[in-house]
């Protein structure tokens, strides 16, 4: 089951480019209005969307277009969230809705979980000295997403502390204890979704292989 069964690769690639152009537009809006926060958030997000191409060119590491779209969509929704929109009386989506932050946290965490899954699976396949059965992999992915969430909150905190010390406005904001805990919670939701998807898919493949081997077994 993949996006490619419903939307062609070409369309997905086009969508990636549309979203990147939109982020470029948001970046320009930030520059024209002098909003440092928008410039940084849109700029970093846009830069991240070029990572897959750089990885392919410099390290010959190719990702499927679905993954690139996943990354780009997550970055785009974050950038879209910080810009003032007429739809919200020229406030940002982040400040106007109670759920935008939760959505982007869940989506970004799903990405992080995906990276953890792919890395561990690659290590598992690569060497007999690393073996991660599905149940354990599930627990590992949850721990990884939680750990990443903690590090991210620490980053946000120390960046804003630094910004206060330097006298510049905050680029990323922490809104308080409840919000931080909610961030971690929605991170976990995104991580759990990917963990369930990945591990059940993995188990499905494993049992299919087992069936095949049994069919070829001489003791039949």
């Amino acid at each position: 089951m993949s996006l490619g069964e419903y939307v062609s690769d070409r369309r997905q690639r086009q969508l990636v480019h549309v979203l990147q152009a939109a982020m470029g537009g948001i970046l320009l809006v930030g520059l024209f209005t002098g909003e440092y926060g928008i410039v940084v958030n849109a700029g970093v997000g846009l830069a991240v969307t070029f990572l897959p191409a750089i990885l392919e060119r410099s390290y010959r590491f190719t990702m499927g277009v679905g993954i690139v779209l996943w990354i780009t969509a997550a970055m785009f929704l974050h950038a879209l969230g910080v810009v003032p929109l007429p739809f919200f009386d020229f406030q940002s989506a982040y400040s106007s809705t109670w759920w935008w932050d939760h959505m982007t946290h869940a989506l970004s965490s799903s990405l992080v979980a995906g990276v953890a899954y792919a890395t561990v699976r690659a290590l598992d396949e690569h060497t007999e000295f690393i073996n991660m059965p599905p149940t354990f992999l599930f627990v590992f992915m949850l721990m990884f997403v939680l750990a990443f969430g903690v590090i991210w909150e620490l980053l946000e905190f120390y960046i804003s502390v630094g910004a206060e010390l330097l006298g510049t406005g905050s680029v990323l904001t922490q809104y308080g204890l409840d919000d931080t805990v909610q961030d971690l919670f929605y991170n976990s939701l995104g991580g759990i979704a990917v963990a369930i998807f990945g591990v059940t898919r993995l188990s499905g493949v494993s049992s299919q292989l087992a069936d095949r081997f049994e069919g070829a077994s001489p003791r039949r």
Binding site: F140, M143, L146, G149, V150, L184, F185
Partner: peptide, 12 residues
Amino acid sequence: ICTLGTAGLWAV
């Protein structure tokens, strides 16, 4: 990872 993750789990 588990040390950090446990802190996050504890928080939630």
